[in-house]
């Protein structure tokens, strides 16, 4: 807790990539969360296109500390026949609370109709869907502006808020145009003024704190929010208020 706020990290992974030091050791992760004052971390596993393998790995990890971790479901249009049934299993049986998609692992941009069954599922269940977004062809945040009005009960989250200036501007414009688009803050580029820009231009109620743990330690990512020149009320929304509302947790 920070100043009575239940801090929720909206962007985290399970699984290892040893070559870049991404190690999903729960002891390390909990230590970092505790030092930072982060209460809950949202986690997903994105390394198996069948979805099921990833979601089961994720569920086992979360079960070790269900008071601190919540799960997001992963599926991929590389195996389209499995998408909806696996989402239903992950939400209904594994108690996951949202959906994570990783378009760079596919050849299809996020506004391609191959992704639509996922969005329809999210719309029917009023779930949040977080995407990796940046300036690459499958992940452009401007595509969110095309799908958001088609599935108005789903909430679409631009992970990394576009990551780089050109894509960040697209993400902000999409959020300004559509009430069901949100912007998440984690990025290895800790460019000065970005948090301030997101809050000013998209509104504090549309910005979500995330860290990308354990690819990155959550402490410097939290530091981006704490050291930003934004109001205390904005910090409260970004750190936890918005995520609580979106995830209903």
């Amino acid at each position: 807790m920070i100043e009575g706020i239940r801090v929720i990290d909206f962007h985290g992974h399970t699984g290892r990539q040893d070559v870049i030091g991404m190690i999903d050791n729960p002891t390390l992760m909990l230590h970092a969360l505790d030092r930072a004052g982060i209460d809950v971390a949202c986690l997903f596993h994105i390394f198996h296109p069948d979805g099921t393998t990833s979601n089961d790995i994720n569920a086992r990890f979360i079960a070790s500390h269900p008071d601190r971790f919540v799960g997001f479901a992963y599926v991929s249009p590389l195996m389209p026949d499995r998408m909806v049934s696996e989402l239903a299993r992950a939400i209904d049986q594994l108690n996951f609370v949202a959906i994570k998609l990783y378009p760079p692992y596919t050849p299809w941009p996020i506004h391609d109709e191959r992704w639509y069954p996922i969005y329809q599922f999210a719309h029917e269940r009023a779930l949040a869907v977080i995407f990796h977004t940046d300036h690459f062809p499958t992940n452009r945040p401007r595509f969110l502006g095309e799908i958001a009005p088609l599935f108005p009960r789903a909430n679409f989250v631009a992970g990394h808020a576009g990551n780089v200036p050109e894509a960040r501007a697209e993400a902000i414009a999409a959020a300004q145009a559509h009430p069901n688009i949100f912007l998440e803050t984690c990025s290895t580029y800790r460019t000065p003024g970005v948090i301030e820009q997101l809050v000013k231009e998209a509104g504090a109620e549309r910005v979500l704190f995330g860290s990308d743990m354990p690819l990155m330690d959550p402490r410097p990512q939290l530091g981006k929010i704490i050291t930003a020149a934004i109001s205390d009320e904005a910090k409260r929304l970004v750190l936890g208020g918005n995520a609580e509302r979106l995830l209903r947790i």
């Binding site: 800790r190 402490r219 050291t227």
Partner: peptide, 18 residues
């Protein structure tokens, strides 16, 4: 590495290492 990166986050991190 300001002004490439924000000045505060890593300093905040160092203060949260215990």
């Amino acid at each position: 590495w300001f002004n490439r990166y924000a000045m505060g986050p890593i300093l905040f991190y160092l203060h949260r290492l215990g």
